[in-house]
Structure formats: structure tokens, C-alpha cells
Amino acid sequence: MASMTIRNLDDGLKQRLRLRAATHGRSMEDEARDILRAALATNEPVARNLADAIGTRLLSIESVELDIPPREPIREPPDFTV
């Protein structure tokens, strides 16, 4: 089995991990291992690009039809020769 060292862990996060481990009656190392195992157990498909991620998120939203206003002629540019 592999081992890993986590450096620069925030004191508050370490305290919460210690309390959570104590609540479950196990060591901090075993608790961290369980957290990692649970977090990585899900096989969520990863979007390949931003367009796919946006499309996936918008699938659950009902479509809205917006009226596109007709184009108007371009206005005359201002005259700065005065």
C-alpha cells in the first residue's frame, strides 16, 4: 500500500478531522482514509470542456423563447468637426 503525507494542513481542519475521527471511534488517519474513499467512490462524468459543462447544467432548466427585436438601421455617426 502507498502512503501519503499532507503538509500545511489548516489547524481548524485538523481539529475538525480529529473530532470527527473521535466521534467515529477511529484514528485521524483511518478517518481521512474513509473520507477519501467516500469522496472518490462516485464516478461522476467529467465534462470535457466548458460548453459541455454548461450544457449539462442547463438540461434541467425549461427552455425559454425570447423575442428577438428587429434590426434597426445604423444611426449616423456624430460630427466632431465643429
Rank of each mutant, 00 (worst) to 15 (best):
Ser63Gln: 11
Ala21Met: 04
Asp30Arg: 15
Thr42Lys: 03
Thr81Met: 12
Leu13Lys: 10
Arg16Gly: 02
Met28Cys: 07
Leu9Ile: 13
Glu65Asn: 02
Arg71Tyr: 03
Ala53Lys: 12
Ser27Cys: 11
Val82Asn: 06
Thr42Val: 08
Ala22His: 07
Val46Met: 13
Arg20Asp: 02
Pro69Leu: 01
Leu40Tyr: 13
Arg57Trp: 07
Thr23Gln: 09
Glu29Gly: 12
Ala22Phe: 02
Glu31Leu: 01
Arg7Trp: 06
Ala47Cys: 14
Ile54Gln: 01
Ile35Lys: 08
Arg18Phe: 00
Ala2Leu: 13
Leu19Cys: 10
Arg33His: 14
Pro70Cys: 02
Arg18His: 13
Glu44Gly: 01
Ala47Gly: 12
Gly55Gln: 10
Ile54Asn: 05
Arg18Met: 08
Asp34Lys: 06
Arg18Lys: 15
Asp67Leu: 05
Met1His: 14
Ser3Thr: 15
Ile61Gly: 03
Glu65Lys: 07
Ala47Val: 13
Arg16Leu: 11
Ile68Asp: 00
Leu50Pro: 01
Arg33Glu: 15
Pro77Cys: 06
Ala53Gly: 10
Arg18Gly: 00
Glu31Met: 10
Ala53His: 13
Ala32Pro: 00
Pro73Arg: 00
Gln15Met: 12
Glu76Gly: 08
Asp67Ile: 03
Glu29Arg: 14
His24Leu: 10
Lys14Leu: 15
Arg18Val: 00
Arg71Ile: 01
Ala51Met: 05
Gly25Met: 06
Arg16Asn: 08
Pro78Phe: 07
Gly55Glu: 09
Leu36Ala: 15
Val82Thr: 08
Thr42Ile: 06
Ala22Trp: 02
Glu62Lys: 00
Ile6Cys: 12
Asn8Thr: 11
Arg33Val: 11
Ala39Asp: 04
Arg20Ser: 04
Pro45Leu: 05
Gly12Thr: 06
Leu19Asp: 15
Val46Arg: 14
Ala38Lys: 12
Thr56Gly: 14
Val64Tyr: 01
Gly55His: 05
Val46Ser: 10
Ala47Gln: 11
Ala22Met: 05
Ser60Met: 06
Ile68Lys: 04
Arg20Lys: 14
Phe80Ala: 09
Pro45Met: 04
Leu50Lys: 04
Arg33Gly: 10
Ser60Glu: 09
Ile6Phe: 15
